[in-house]
Amino acid sequence: MKKNILLMVLLSILLSVFNLSAQEQARMLPSVNVKTLTGEIFNTENFSNDGKPIIIDFWATWCKPCIEELTAIHEEYADWQKETGVKLITISIDDARTMNRVAPFVNGKGWNYENYLDANGDFKRAMNVNMPPHTFVLNGKGEIVWQHVGFTEGSQEELIAAVRSLLEKNIAEPVKTN
């Protein structure tokens, strides 16, 4: 039995190495309907930030690490925006039980993000999100270029570093305009 466990550990390490190389390929956002905090239907294809990077953060009002992450970012968000022009979009995966809490919660915290509801997990599934918090970074063309699961204090630095690296790339190889 112990051999089996060992085998699985090895297998999984192999798998994750494979994944690391697989995820380097850019991918666009899927087209899924979410809702605004006032109940309007909004298609995820229409997320935009005028050609600047976007961070998408899947969270829930019952997920403490998610709240810690958004609170930590909140403290630095104004600086991040000034420096990189980045926009943070939150996707709450609260279901019908707690989704009415999202608007008061977000406002109660004084967060300045753009917020949406994904009450039945349609966007979550399309993005293969399994455990919140799960963050994505999109470049100016809307391609998913980076993602991360989980939050421990300090990992917001890695997130903004991913956004910064996009800007550096843009300077090195400017986007072609037709």
């Binding site: 466990i5 699985m8 550990v9 999984s12 798998l15 994750s16 994944n19 829930a60 019952w62 997920c63 403490k64 690490p65 998610c66 293969n128 999100v129 399994n130 455990m131 919140p132 918090p133 799960h134 993602q147 699961v149 989980g150 939050f151 421990t152 990992s155």
Partner: peptide, 19 residues
Amino acid sequence: GVCRNVPASNGFLMSITSS
């Protein structure tokens, strides 16, 4: 740093998630 729903258990638990 993450939240997940887990069943009751006793013993070794290994969990791998990849996306």
